[in-house]
Computed example of a mutant assay.
Amino acid sequence: MARGFWNSAAAAFAMIATLLLASLGGRPALAAEEVLRIGYQKSSSLLILLKGQGALEKALAPLGVKVAWHEFSSGLPLLEGVNVGSIDLSADVAEPVPLFAQAANAKLTYLAQEKPSPTGQAIVVRKDSPIKTLADLKGKKIGFAKAAGVHYLTLQALEKAGVKLKETEIVYLQPADGRVAFERGAIDAWAIWDPFLAALQKSVEVRVLADGGAADVSYRRFYLTSTKYALNRPDVLNIVVDELRKAGEWVKARPKEAAERLAPLVGLDAATLELANSRRSYAVALVDEDALAEQQKISDAFTEAQLLPRRLDVRGNDVWKGAR
């Protein structure tokens, strides 16, 4: 199963690269010094806020830089977009995603992190499920997205309960498909992150078997860019990180207003988003040694579980230190 997982993940990464390159149609990419191309996903709350407000466009206007926004379904396609040059900056992705990208030889630079939000992801079962503990998941079907933060959460939570991941039946599902499978009873448990977790809890009676706090999983989210862009436009990235930091502080200071403003932008109600936001730190900072050490720990755990093909040195990717 492990080798099959890695082969399918690597093949998916390569296919994404081919599709993204084909989408350029043989035309030269927009000049990085003129247009900052940003990729984001539904859980990229801070960038979605900045997009809705036009804040980055205003902040970058004095540099003569415009912004183009591109929505992606999940983290791996985002990072492959950076790798092949179809976008310059990836919105926040959970810890394992850069590791699987690095294992597929992507050359990336860690730009910034959102500091730990351990309760922002969880393993849940239906309220009437006979499954009462993590140990009861042995032999059961667990759904989650490949290489997502919840992949590591599930691995660690089960290990603490004395269950190997390979002793369960894993079903790889993107959030929308996972929700359908969970509600239909096609999977016994679902590992999912906010805001999808909050949306589920607001509409379905569920029990949390473990979140990141219980499993000693920090759940950081990382913003990444191409190393070329980091070298060429540190002035632009300095503004981006500053705007992200200010947006994170604003969300935490005004949770109700932030939820109301985000609601129409992501298609969820304000109450759901307020719950989700209460579990996210939104504390944007540069990537420090603690974050890198934890990335190495996660990488080693995936390697030991034979989910990565070789041991990685996470410091093989560049780390942005701010404009000089």
Rank of each mutant, 00 (worst) to 15 (best):
F5G: 10
N7W: 08
A10F: 11
S23K: 11
L24G: 12
R27F: 05
P28F: 03
A29W: 04
A29E: 10
A29I: 06
L36H: 03
I38V: 14
I38Y: 08
G39W: 02
S43A: 14
L47I: 12
G52Y: 10
G54K: 13
L56C: 07
G64D: 09
G64S: 10
V65W: 02
V67F: 03
H70T: 12
E71L: 10
S74V: 01
P77R: 07
P77E: 04
L78K: 04
P96G: 03
P98W: 00
A106E: 03
A112D: 12
E114Y: 08
V124R: 08
R126S: 13
D128T: 09
T133Q: 07
A148N: 14
A148W: 14
E159D: 14
A161S: 12
G162E: 12
V163F: 09
L173M: 11
Q174K: 10
A186F: 15
A191F: 10
A191T: 09
Q201K: 13
S203D: 08
V208M: 03
L209A: 05
A210H: 00
V217L: 05
S218Y: 08
R220W: 01
R221P: 00
L224Y: 00
T225I: 05
L231T: 14
P234D: 03
V236N: 02
L237H: 10
A247T: 09
G248R: 09
A253I: 11
L268C: 04
A271R: 07
A271I: 01
N277S: 11
L286Y: 15
L286F: 13
V287H: 01
I298L: 02
D300A: 02
L307M: 09
L312F: 00
L312S: 00
G316E: 03
G316K: 01
D318V: 01
D318C: 01
R324S: 11
